[in-house]
Lab assay of single mutants.
Amino acid sequence: MSIQHFRVALIPFFAAFCLPVFAHPETLVKVKDAEDQLGARVGYIELDLNSGKILESFRPEERFPMMSTFKVLLCGAVLSRVDAGQEQLGRRIHYSQNDLVEYSPVTEKHLTDGMTVRELCSAAITMSDNTAANLLLTTIGGPKELTAFLHNMGDHVTRLDRWEPELNEAIPNDERDTTMPAAMATTLRKLLTGELLTLASRQQLIDWMEADKVAGPLLRSALPAGWFIADKSGASERGSRGIIAALGPDGKPSRIVVIYTTGSQATMDERNRQIAEIGASLIKHW
């Protein structure tokens, strides 16, 4: 067993022997300050990975656009099909120029040879490739089937209704393509630590998230040396920005953090900075 597999395998073990964890309200002060700075709603939740206990939250049951954070859930659904023998990570999918949508930095380079399901999930999570996400959605039956998968997991909140890039419209009070911080955190925890996926698939999912290449300005920018993070960011219209992450010190994840914001007129750089500052406060008061 590799060191990485050993780390994931021990998560349920540590759950039975973990020391108590305590929240620090200073982080919530920073979350509220971020709302003021951005002139927008901010949703935040911090969940103990082992016990599932909510350590701190702000607007945990308000809806926010999922943006590209849905791609982790999508690849979780794909992996569940792999575990059930209904899909193969090595299966090659061919597509055409007509399938390409905006922001497809990986898939646009493989029009001649296609990409495997594994490569598409990697592109969707690590590079947030939109065409990769659409091709993967097709393999499971579309957005409604992803919503059904989540319902079967016990998540009756999170929903995907449209494809890339339309799902990023982020219209106020529109429940399409939205989640709540509490629902997303719970669902992510189930995918990473529960029995829904095999150990190999849980490890694959967290490996893809750990290799995320487009979330550098967010929580990763505040991460001390030696800390672990596996994450997925998202951005969409109407000043929306978000990130879902499993992180912790000593090279292993111990908490789930979900941050969403929407309705801001601030620049992308400012939205990134506010999320990074929330992360810095979280780490300082860990």
Results as ranks from 00 to 15, higher is better:
H5E: 07
H5P: 05
R7V: 08
L10W: 08
I11K: 06
F14Y: 00
A15W: 15
C18Y: 07
P20D: 15
V21A: 14
P25C: 07
L28M: 12
A40T: 05
V42S: 00
V42L: 08
Y44I: 08
E46D: 01
G52R: 01
L55R: 05
L55G: 02
L55C: 04
E56A: 11
S57G: 07
S57N: 05
E62V: 05
P65A: 06
F70S: 05
C75W: 08
G76A: 12
V78R: 00
L79C: 02
L79M: 11
Q86V: 14
Q86S: 14
E87D: 08
E87V: 06
G90F: 13
I93L: 12
I93F: 03
S96W: 08
S96L: 12
Q97W: 12
D99S: 10
K109T: 08
K109A: 12
H110C: 07
N134K: 01
P143R: 01
E145L: 09
T147K: 03
F149D: 02
L150G: 01
L150A: 08
H151Q: 13
H156C: 13
T158R: 00
L167H: 02
N168S: 07
N168D: 08
A170L: 12
P172G: 09
P172S: 09
D174I: 01
R176N: 05
M180A: 15
M180Q: 14
P181T: 01
T186G: 12
T187N: 07
L188R: 00
R189H: 13
R189G: 07
L192G: 00
T198M: 08
W208R: 00
E210K: 10
A211P: 02
A211F: 04
V214T: 07
S221E: 10
A222I: 14
A225C: 13
K232Q: 00
G234C: 04
S240E: 07
S240N: 15
S240Y: 06
R241L: 04
R241G: 06
R241S: 08
R241E: 02
I244G: 00
L247I: 14
P249K: 06
P249L: 02
P249Q: 04
P249S: 03
G251Q: 08
R255A: 01
I256S: 00
I256A: 01
S264D: 11
S264H: 07
Q265M: 14
A266T: 10
A266S: 10
T267P: 15
M268E: 09
E270Q: 14
Q274R: 09
A280S: 13
A280D: 12
L282G: 01
H285N: 11
